[in-house]
Amino acid sequence: MIQHLCDWLSATWLSQAFGNADWFVPAVQTVHILAIAALVTMLVMMHVRVLGLMRRAPPLQRLAAGYLPWVWCALGVLFVTGVLLTITEPGRELLNPSFRIKMLLVAVLIALTLVLQAGLRRDPQFWSVSPRRRGLGGAIALGSLLLCVGIIAAGRLIAYV
C-alpha cells in the first residue's frame, strides 16, 4: 500500500518539478537542519536546566515560556520541509526503516514535550515541588535528550539505509 502511495506521489507534477530542480533538495534540507538546530538547542537548554546542569540560567518556567512557542514553530517548519522532501523522494523516506524509526521517536518526543508543558501550565513550580516530581521531570528531560540524539541519528541514517 505504501509502495502504491510512493509510486503515485513520485508521478505527480509537483514531485517531478521538485525533483528536476537540483537545488531543491539541498536547499530544503538546509532549512530542515537549521530548524533542527533551533529546536534541539532550545530543548537542550530547558532540559539541562531541569537536570541542574546550567545553574546560572533562569528557572525552567521562564525558559519554557520563552522557548516553547518557538519549539512548536520550529516543529511546524520541520513538518513542512519534511513533507516537501517526502513529496520529492517518496520512496527514499516512506519505505525507509530509519525514517519510520525517526517518526516514531518524533511522536514520543512531542508527547514528552506536551507533558512538560502541561505541567508548567498547571503550576510554574510543577516539576520542582516534590522529590517525586523532580525525579519525573528529570526522567522526561533525560528521555527527551536521548530522543533528540536518536532522531538526529535516524534522520542522518535515512541516507544510508
Binding site: 537542519i33 538546530a37 529546536l39 538547542t41 538526529i152 541519528a153 542522518r156
Partner: peptide, 17 residues
C-alpha cells in the same frame, strides 16, 4: 557524520540564540 551533525545543531542553535 551523526556525531558531527549532533554537535553542529548545538553550535548553530546556541550561536543563533
Amino acid at each position: 557524520e551523526i556525531a558531527h551533525v549532533l554537535a553542529l545543531t548545538l553550535v548553530v542553535g546556541s550561536v543563533a540564540m
